[in-house]
Design a binder for these strands. Structure first.
Length: 367
DNA sequence: AAACCGTGGTG
DNA sequence: TCACCAAGGTT
């Protein structure tokens, strides 16, 4: 069931596609993944670009294709090798799924990225967007992509009235994207829709006067920022996190590896945990190190505090230098642990807040 | 369906 | 400062 607005747009699809593609061919940014049609590199770029800006993604993409030029080389690497390259990019499940998928592709598809939707969707980390992006860009198949850019572009073109976060809205806009994609150049069309959203049809202050398809968008050019419509999100909770910095007689720092699933999965970190209500931050530090590692510690100097925002909560990290009073640290959850020399800390993947702590320790001449 | 999952840029 | 959000996927 199409709205009147989408019917009008689809009726003009050939003209719309031509205007957009002409603009794209003249104005497209020169991005590294646009220099290849290797399905592996297209896949890699799309995974890196999930919820990630081009400027942040680019150096990671270049490092990844240099370090892992083929599916086979990615599959042969260890997860820790991959996480070292991925460190700082966030959403670490992408790295874990990429790694799993590479091994599946080697085993089941002889190292070739699948060229059909069913097989692609069966691989971890590949959802509707990424499958359509790979199929259209690497294999010239006419699937429309629906990312944040396309949602914004289409919702403005159509004056789409509903909350675009609802699944019914997504389904509808996806069907419009599929109907609108240029069959003769599906990959280029999809890239041009996203390019338009990223450079012209931006969330704030869109450049409507420079838009190649503004004549198809008569209704929203006066108030484009009213779209896409969304409900307000609730403020996210805050937690205080106590962290213990343990240093042994050889100057090595104690760290442990997080479980492979969940938040920051597979990364290394300094021990500690959440302060409970009514508890002091020093008490939290003592309690967490006792619970996690079975040691009694004296909580010493507060070395630094580090704020960090995650996707659905925020923290303030309080790092204390600690001395062991009794016991020897062993993981109560059977996680890998290590005493790491200062000059080998870069061989382990740490979350951003922990990496900031390491930099602070260097600054304070503590390591 | 809605919560979970990082980090950094932007206004 | 702070809300928003970026080439989304999984559970």
């Amino acid at each position: 069931m199409k709205t009147a607005a989408s019917t009008i747009l689809l009726t003009q699809a050939p003209e719309f596609q031509k205007a957009l593609l002409n603009w794209f061919q003249a104005r497209a940014r020169d991005l590294p993944w646009r220099k290849t049609t290797d399905p592996y590199k297209i896949w890699l770029s799309e995974v890196i670009l999930q919820q990630t800006r081009v400027d942040q993604a680019t150096p990671y993409y270049l490092r990844m294709i240099e370090r892992f030029p083929t599916v086979s080389e990615l599959a042969a690497a260890s997860l820790d090798d991959l996480l070292i390259v991925w460190e700082g990019l966030g959403y670490y499940s992408r790295a874990r799924n990429l790694h799993k998928a590479a091994r599946e592709i080697v085993e089941r598809f002889q190292g070739h990225v699948p060229n059909n939707r069913e097989d692609l969707l069966g691989l971890p980390g590949i959802g509707p967007y990424t499958a359509s992006a790979i199929l259209s860009i690497a294999f010239a198949q006419p699937y429309g992509v629906l990312d944040g850019n396309v949602i914004r572009v289409l919702s403005r073109l159509l004056e789409f009235p509903d909350d675009v976060r609802k699944s019914a809205s997504r389904n509808y806009l996806q069907s419009v994207a599929n109907d609108l994609v240029a069959v003769s150049a599906p990959g280029e069309f999809n890239e041009s829709m996203m390019e338009l959203g990223a450079t012209i049809c931006t969330p704030k202050n869109p450049q409507c006067e420079a838009c190649p398809v503004h004549s198809f968008c008569e209704g929203t050019k006066n108030d484009p920022e009213a779209f896409p419509r969304t409900v307000k999100k609730l403020p996210i909770p805050h937690h205080d996190i106590a962290v213990g910095v343990l240093c042994n007689s050889q100057g090595e720092l104690f760290a442990q590896r997080r479980p492979e699933n969940g938040l920051l999965g597979g990364l290394w970190e300094f021990p500690g945990g959440k302060r409970e209500s009514g508890e002091s931050i020093e008490d939290a530090c003592r309690r967490e190190l006792k619970e996690e590692l079975g040691i009694d510690v004296e909580v010493g100097e507060l070395l630094t505090t580090i704020p960090q925002v995650y996707s659905h909560f925020k923290i303030t990290l309080y790092a204390f230098r600690c001395d062991i009073l009794s016991g020897s640290p062993e993981s109560s959850r059977d996680l890998p642990i290590a005493w790491i020399a200062a000059d080998r800390l870069e061989e382990y993947a740490f979350p951003k807040a922990n990496r900031k702590l390491i930099e602070k320790l260097v600054e304070l001449d503590q390591i």
